[in-house]
Design a protein around this nucleic acid. Structure first.
Length: 262
DNA sequence: ATGGCAATGTTTCATTGA
């Protein structure tokens, strides 16, 4: 039995319940990590996902942020936030749970606003805390997935106009270095295991015909430790979900893993 | 076709996102 894990910044789960239902019903991922719920746990449409055969772990807050993990099988050892990080107490950005022996983390990294803003420094600090949390909690030999909106395009091929984006938030060198430092824990980009090409994005600006012109960035990912990367049969971006009326500005990303003995 | 910002709440504008 293969395991398909998807991740989607849904940009308000209440505003897009119908799209969530359609995605779960048509794609049927075993696991779906969500970001930017923009609601509290009480406001999360738990009955809707339950009807579709999913159980949900939800870490929400009013108006901003909010992450969840949906799964067709049992969610175990749910952990909210980062260990030993009081700074994150006010922001629901990280949620972990174990599914079929795989530790799954749903991550919503800070946007960072402008490079000269305090929010940008907080973004870098978030990355440093996340890396430390991995060091505290996990080992690179474990089956671990970091799924989410990382708000950093790793390389030029992940950006529609690298010259325009040069030095801008989401593509500036310090945050790309922070992402590299996170991945140096022992994580691989599942999309790049199967797709070396440029021009494949997970986010498009609502403004200026971003999507029709394919003016996007690849800032959402499923990052996997070596034992899972070795079992990654396929990975892609569900660009279809960005089409039509009232889409999220992000498309879901996913990776499929063959069942590994041991 | 895939379409010209969108969601939230502080609500008729401000804030945030990326």
């Amino acid at each position: 039995m293969a395991l398909t894990v998807a991740s989607w910044n849904i940009n308000s789960v209440r505003a897009r319940v119908e799209r969530l239902e359609a995605y779960l019903a048509s794609r049927r991922p075993d696991v779906l990590c969500l970001q930017e719920l923009k609601c509290t746990e009480q406001q999360f449409p738990g009955d809707v996902v339950e009807r579709l055969g999913y159980q949900a772990a939800v870490y929400g807050q009013k108006t901003y942020n909010g992450v969840a993990i949906l799964s067709t099988s049992a969610l175990q050892d749910v952990e909210r936030g980062l260990p030993l990080a009081d700074d994150d107490a006010q922001q629901a950005r990280v949620l972990a749970a174990t599914v079929q022996g795989v530790r799954v983390v749903s991550v919503y990294a800070p946007n960072g606003q402008a490079v000269d803003s305090p929010a940008y420094q907080e973004k870098l600090a978030f990355y440093a805390r996340l890396r430390r949390a991995l060091d505290v909690r996990y080992r690179g030999e474990e089956r671990l997935l970091l799924c989410g909106d990382f708000n950093v395009a790793p390389e030029e091929r992940d950006v529609w106009d690298p010259q325009l984006w040069d030095g801008q938030t989401l593509f500036s060198l310090p945050e790309r270095a922070a992402l590299r430092e996170l991945l140096a824990f022992g994580l691989q980009d599942t999309f790049r295991l199967h797709h070396p090409e440029a021009g494949r994005y997970s986010w498009w600006d609502y403004r200026m015909l971003g999507f029709p012109k394919n003016h996007g960035l690849r800032i959402d990912a499923v990052y996997a430790t070596a034992p899972l990367a070795a079992r990654c049969e396929a990975a892609d971006i569900d660009r279809e979900a960005r089409k039509g009326k009232l889409p999220s500005d992000h498309a879901p990303v996913w990776a499929r893993f063959s069942s590994a003995p041991g």
